[in-house]
Design a protein around this nucleic acid. Sequence first.
DNA 1: AGATATAGCACTAGATCGGTGCTGATTGGA
DNA 2: TCCAATCAGCACCGATCTAGTGCTATATCT
Lengths: 163, 163
Amino acid sequence: MLQLTKRTEYALIALTVLAGREGEVVSVREIGELYPVPRRLLAEVLKELSRAGILASQRGSNGGYFLTRPAAEINVAQVVGALEGLPAIAGCSSEDFEPGACEVEPVCPIRSPIQRLRIGVWAVFERMSLRDLAEPARPPLSRAVPVGSGASDGSSSGSGSEA
Amino acid sequence: MLQLTKRTEYALIALTVLAGREGEVVSVREIGELYPVPRRLLAEVLKELSRAGILASQRGSNGGYFLTRPAAEINVAQVVGALEGLPAIAGCSSEDFEPGACEVEPVCPIRSPIQRLRIGVWAVFERMSLRDLAEPARPPLSRAVPVGSGASDGSSSGSGSEA
DNA sequence: AGATATAGCACTAGATCGGTGCTGATTGGA
DNA sequence: TCCAATCAGCACCGATCTAGTGCTATATCT
């Protein structure tokens, strides 16, 4: 399945909030009040991002999480990498792939193409920063990915709700 | 998990063979003799591709499968789409997503960014044709994806880790 | 002290995936 | 004509992963 996990979705939602309030400490409760996500699970996810160094935490009352770096310097690839490992595309290009696990590997004709796909997908995620997440108005990918020439979500349509 | 299924991997391997023998009818057995893939599963996958119109089949002895169009006109996106559905990235952008299934949807702040990611990933898959698969020498993505500066991995000597 | 909030660990139910079994239909050849 | 090779269709099982929760400890502010 070429799909992010719910954990990652929740992470991105939370990071949207964090990116919009740089410098502030935001608690899981606050985020949960903004968006109907399972708080417990969200907490688990933010802990992971904290362990990965993307967030830092403040314990105790008035505690919460905050970005360790400017939102513009954190990209989706880092987030996905922290929660799911690097996009693997195929098992043989995964992080925890042990040689010999795939019978085809020694003669595999698609290793090189898979690598290229992986790099390409990775690049797509790298090109979107948390600032781009928090400000959906600007089309950050239209420059780099010349495929949706006019299809890159018309923009200027206020608070994003396009099909 | 941002990873193709084994089914899709096997499909791509088989299609590499098919693309290298355009016009010929190739049986599951032949492909299984070339690459150590579970033949039964491979057969199941090729049936699916046949139902999707990417392949056509010839029954009886001397039977097998063949491409319905030139290899250069079939891209990885079509194959992935046929076997896994379009790359969804998130559940809410999946094909079989029913409105109301996601609590966050009405107020979701990342729908638009997710869409952009989806389009970008889709584009990466679209840009690689079966001909590119069959001829790994040429680097078809280096033009369109300017991220691997010189990292197009010249020889497949394994470990392409660029972090 | 007590309320708030994160840290850490483990656990369950459900979905998905990888792979297989079996039966039938079609084609070419001995 | 009969047989072997091959695809078509359906259903099934075990392993793995995901989504979500329970519980307890620790830190901080008032």
